[in-house]
Each structure stands twice: as C-alpha cells, then as structure tokens.
C-alpha cells in the first residue's frame, strides 16, 4: 500500500502496523464494511416495500388478504429474528430449486426428499455448479437480502399499519365527501400523510436494521464478523499469515466502534429529518417547532 512497505526488514512499530493493516486480507475486511452498507442500501427500501404491502393487506376489506397481512406481521414478530434468518435461507433456496426442478426437468420421477437429502436434477441447481465463484457469492448475498427484507418488512408493516390508523379520520371523511373512491383516498390522502406518523417507528427500525447486519455472518456471507474472526486469530507460527497473538478482541473492538459511530451518525441524521417533516404538521413536534419560531 505505502511505498515504504516494500522492504519488510526496515519496518518497525507504527510503520509496520500501517503496512500490516493495509494487506490484501485487511482490504477484504474494509470491502466487507462496504458490503454492510450495500446490504442496508438495498434492504431498507425492500423492507419498506414489503412493509407497505403487508400493512395494506392488513387493512384490506377482503378477509383472506387481511388475515394474511396480520398473520405475516404477528408471526415474524413473535419469533426470534435469527431463527427466521436461519430458516429462510434454506427454505428460499430449496423453494427456488424446487420450482426450477419442476420447470426444467419434467421427466424426473424420483422423489425430491430422499430421507435426509434434498435431490433435484443438475440443471435445476441454483446457482449451476459450473458457474463461477462470484455468481455463488452474489446468489448467497441476494438470498440474505431477501431474508432481511421479509423479516424487517413485517416490522415495517406494523409501523406503517399504525401510521395509517394515526392519520386523522376527518381527512379520509373529507376525501370521501369530495367523492373520491377508496383507492383514490388511499393514494392521494392517506399515503402522503402517514409518513410523519411512521417516522419514529421507521427510525427505530433503521437502528434495529443496522444492528442486525452482523447476522449476515450466520447466513454464510463473508462479512465483517467473518473477517474479524479470521484476521484476529492467532495461527500456528509455522503457517502463520498473521504475525501476532490472539487479536480478535481488538478486531471486535474495532467493529464495536464502527457500529457506534454508524448508529450515532444515523441518530443525528434522523433527528434532522424528523425536524424537517414535523414542520407545519398538526402534531406535538410541529407545534413545538412553531412555538420555538415565534
């Protein structure tokens, strides 16, 4: 990385550490920090989308749809999220392979579950065993994103469901009085107004989402936890890539600080957004802003 790293003999103390912390493997650690940010950037809107559909379903007029929405919210909330992570990664994988198997190998007549094995034809494997490494990694990451979106979608659905109910009833009644249909009043009146009520819950959800990102490790993605564990470990001196003792404590301390900074930063940004959205709203927050101004 640095020019003085070229000669290992000359390195001492701080310069050695600077060189050591910029080796290729450490670069993977820093890249995986980017992976966490990428996961957040994809998952947050996806979870919001799931949440929006969940909340809309939960307040639907059709009973089956309403039960589906409410069941989705209740079940995901009542069970530890990590159990869902472990469950969905296998279940989604098997589901996709099962569907591909049905579509691609119609002539196959052996059962798919043979004892403790899940057997599909080679063409239905996902990803194909011939595909390069990066496809496998992207596939694993996408499964993880989908899992996160399903689990956090349920939490978002609950927040949005509450927010939709918090919009003053008079607003909807006015819309109806103007002759809007149910659909029109939903899209034109309810949805634009619900965000300010949803914001505290969604901010909280964002914090929870940040703090759930290390669980990527359990889903088999080589993330920051994986690299911290890997790089910090003391190996036998003979084979050692890592010329130090057990440093895992320090690597995880680094992770801890990373997350603390990240959550603190989010808190500040969310605080600002709340202030901006409360502006001119008929809520206590908006009222406080108005009083402060006059």
């Amino acid at each position: 990385m640095f020019s003085y790293c070229a000669d290992p003999e000359a390195l001492e103390g701080f310069t050695w550490l600077a060189c050591y912390l910029t080796t290729g493997k450490h670069m993977s650690l820093y890249v995986s920090l980017g992976v966490v940010l990428l996961l957040l950037a994809i998952t947050a809107p996806a979870a919001l989308l799931f949440g929006f559909f969940g909340a809309s379903a939960a307040r639907s007029k059709l009973l089956p749809l309403r039960l589906l929405g409410k069941g989705y919210i209740a079940i995901v909330r009542g069970v530890p999220d990590i159990a869902f992570f472990l469950f969905f990664v296998i279940a989604l994988d098997q589901g996709i392979e099962y569907l591909r198997h049905k579509a691609l190998c119609p002539g196959w007549n052996e059962p798919i579950r043979q004892g403790n094995d899940f057997v599909v034809c080679t063409a239905a494997k996902m990803p194909l065993s011939t595909s390069p490494q990066w496809v496998h990694e992207v596939y694993g990451f996408s499964l993880a994103v989908l899992t996160f979106a399903i689990v956090f979608g349920a939490f978002a659905a609950n927040v949005l469901f509450g927010a939709m109910r918090a919009v003053p009833r008079a607003q909807i009644e006015t819309a109806e009085a103007y002759g809007m249909t149910r659909r029109q009043s939903f899209w034109r009146i309810l949805v634009p107004q619900m965000w300010v009520y949803a914001l505290p819950g969604l901010s909280n959800l964002w914090m929870v989402l940040i703090k759930a990102t290390p669980l990527l490790f359990l889903l088999g993605v080589e993330d920051i936890v994986y690299w911290s564990k890997e790089l910090g470990a003391a190996k036998l001196a003979r084979y050692s890539d890592y010329p130090h003792g057990d440093w895992r404590m320090w690597y995880f301390l680094g992770l801890l600080v990373f997350y603390l900074l990240f959550t603190k930063l989010s808190e500040i940004v969310l605080e600002r957004i709340t202030r901006r959205l409360s502006h001119g709203q008929a809520t206590t927050g908006g009222e406080a802003l108005r009083k402060a101004a006059t």
């Binding site: 703090k211 290390p214 910090g232 057990d246 895992r248 404590m249 992770l255 603390l260 959550t263």
Partner: peptide
C-alpha cells in the same frame, strides 16, 4: 448503539484474553 451479536463476540474474546 452496537449490535448484541458483536458484543457477544467481543465479550467472549475479552474473557478469553
């Protein structure tokens, strides 16, 4: 402000040291 998962790891390795 930090994930419980990372706290567990950190705690375990501190105790190990």
């Amino acid at each position: 402000g930090s994930p419980l998962f990372v706290q567990f790891f950190f705690g375990y390795f501190v105790f190990l040291s």
